[in-house]
Write a protein that binds this DNA or RNA. Structure first.
Ligand SMILES: [Zn+2]
Ligand SMILES: [Zn+2]
Ligand SMILES: [Zn+2]
Ligand SMILES: [Zn+2]
Lengths: 131, 131
DNA sequence: AATAATTTGTTATATTATAACACTATCTTC
DNA sequence: GAAGATAGTGTTATAATATAACAAATTATT
């Protein structure tokens, strides 16, 4: 059974808040040091919150950076994520492109079976790193 | 400048051989224990070989698994990788689909700028895990 | 209130990856 | 082929990322 009100718990809110305030993907131990003043003092507290936040879709993990970002709420496909990542500064944005999301969601393997999820990471150079 | 003969070195060959012999993505420390009898006894030896092998395209890293696979030599796009990963057993295969690879390579950001690379991980259930 | 389920706090440890340094082998250029 | 540059090696130590395990506290259900 879930939380009756289906709300985030205290620790989950603290961690989510920390991630949302960053304009870049945040690392777990960076979160930990940022929220230590709020009482979260050990890695499991952060990792447990992250696990739940990811599960409910509030947070995504950027696998190639071992970092975490808040969902920009424009997730088109519930089972897929698309990110644009700056190779130079790690600035990351969630890509909302209907055609691309649909293409990936509809993609089937050799046997014609659809995949249940996907994660796409696009690498490039962000605006401010170009100048 | 590179190795004149552009060949892999002893350690690189040992590590590549180990990866190629596996039918699943291999973890760095698993490689380490597998090749310890061949003289590679410390993590940096494995990680340095991996770095080079990835650089030359012989090996890819599966980011979501922190594991490594040998390139199946069918890389369509030099700057992009596509993998199909079984959520149940981690069995991974490199996907060679021209349409998908082209779609991803040609994809442009909001400003019309092309990305320099991509990595797509497709999650599903492999044949043997379905039965 | 009793029970069950979830969340939390805490300690310890596992796993993944790199820094730093001395040394060796190989390549380049003269 | 010697001098210098580059790349690879071996080694020790340590950094960075993530989870196991268990006890205590909180919240939900009966
Ligand atoms: Zn999202
Ligand atoms: Zn940038
Ligand atoms: Zn490949
Ligand atoms: Zn499987």
């Amino acid at each position: 059974m879930k939380n009756k009100k289906n709300e985030l718990t205290k620790n989950q809110k603290i961690v989510l808040d920390c991630i949302q305030k960053s304009n870049k993907p945040v690392k777990a131990y960076s979160i930990l040091s940022n929220v230590s003043k709020k009482g979260l003092k050990a890695p499991p507290q952060v990792y447990r919150a992250l696990e739940k936040l990811i599960e409910v879709g509030e947070v995504h993990k950027i696998e190639s950076l071992n970092s975490f970002v808040a969902c920009n709420s424009k997730c088109i496909e519930p089972n897929g994520t698309i990110f644009s990542i700056c190779k130079s500064c790690d600035q990351t944005t969630e890509v909302s492109n209907v055609a691309l999301a649909k293409f990936l969601s509809d993609f089937k393997d050799m046997n014609g079976t659809q995949f249940s999820g996907f994660n796409l990471e696009l690498f490039g150079t962000c605006k401010s790193c170009k100048t």
